[in-house]
Amino acid sequence: MRIRELGIGGAFLVEPKIFPDSRGMFLEVFKQPAFAEAVGHPLNVAQVNCSVSVRGTIRGLHAIHLPGQARYVSCPAGAIRDIVVDIRQGSPTYGQHVAVELSEDNRHALYLAEGLAHGFAPLSDQATVFYLCSATWSPENSYEINPLDPDLDLPWPRDREPVLSDKDRAAPSFKEAERLGILPSYADCQARYAELAAAANGATR
């Protein structure tokens, strides 16, 4: 299993080793020791979500107020483009994004640390997505940023009219979210990551 950090700190692409044979294939979807070594702390799984989306759907951009909810995202059926946006004020990559393809063919997964926003869109007629979440979801702690914000200019599929939830379509733009004061600071996020690493180190002593 290869785990590498992407162009935004706290976003990691997980590339498992696939073992095909005459019966099909086998792979390790998640491996705690490899994950903790790459990220600096283990992933505490408190909730597992599943969504099924048709082509044209955009889900996101979604984020959680600190201490937040880290997410480990995979696509076991179909294919998606997942886009991570750095919304941490003061970050060296503030306002930038990275996009990755997760699919039933490559079996890649994406880890997003607390403080990052993300969304995804199917590249296939239908896609199933699983999320391992470090905390349970609570509506009062979640917020959205409009995925079609022209200032962000995110690389969503352009082959059909996007289908969004009412909440995502009405979400503020990135600059509006900044003015509303709902975005996390990079310093607070770094402190949160250090806290998780310190707790992991203390548990192993």
Rank of each mutant, 00 (worst) to 15 (best):
A127L: 02
G119E: 11
Y72H: 10
S91C: 12
L13G: 08
D21F: 11
E5H: 06
T93F: 10
S91K: 09
F26C: 06
R59E: 06
E104N: 04
A70R: 07
E144W: 09
K175A: 15
I80K: 09
M1P: 02
L154K: 12
A200K: 07
E178N: 11
I8M: 03
E140S: 12
N141T: 08
Y186R: 04
P42Q: 11
K175Y: 11
L132W: 04
T57I: 15
I83L: 02
D188A: 15
G95W: 09
I64F: 11
G115A: 06
F35G: 05
C133Y: 01
P139H: 12
V98H: 09
L6C: 09
L61S: 12
A121N: 00
V48C: 01
V84T: 09
G7C: 04
H108T: 07
D125H: 11
R107C: 09
G119L: 12
G181N: 04
P150R: 00
G68M: 06
F19I: 14
F30K: 03
D188Q: 14
A171P: 07
G9V: 03
G10C: 09
I3F: 12
G202M: 02
P147K: 02
L180C: 03
S124F: 08
E15G: 04
I3D: 08
V54A: 06
T57F: 04
A198C: 07
V84L: 00
D105A: 06
G56F: 05
Y186I: 04
A199Q: 13
E101N: 14
N201L: 10
Q190T: 01
P76N: 13
I87S: 00
G56K: 07
D86T: 01
L116F: 09
V45N: 01
C133M: 02
P92H: 07
P162D: 08
A127Y: 08
D82W: 03
D166H: 10
K175R: 15
R169L: 13
D151R: 09
R205W: 00
H65N: 13
Y143D: 01
K167T: 10
Q32H: 06
D125P: 02
A113V: 03
E101H: 13
E37I: 03
S165G: 03
P155M: 12
A34D: 15
P157A: 15
W156D: 05
P147I: 11
K175D: 09
V163L: 15
N49A: 02
L152H: 03
W137N: 08
E161M: 14
H118P: 08
L116E: 12
A170C: 04
R88K: 05
F30Q: 07
I3Q: 08
P157L: 14
F26A: 10
Q126A: 15
I3C: 03
F130H: 00
T128D: 04
Y143W: 10
F26D: 00
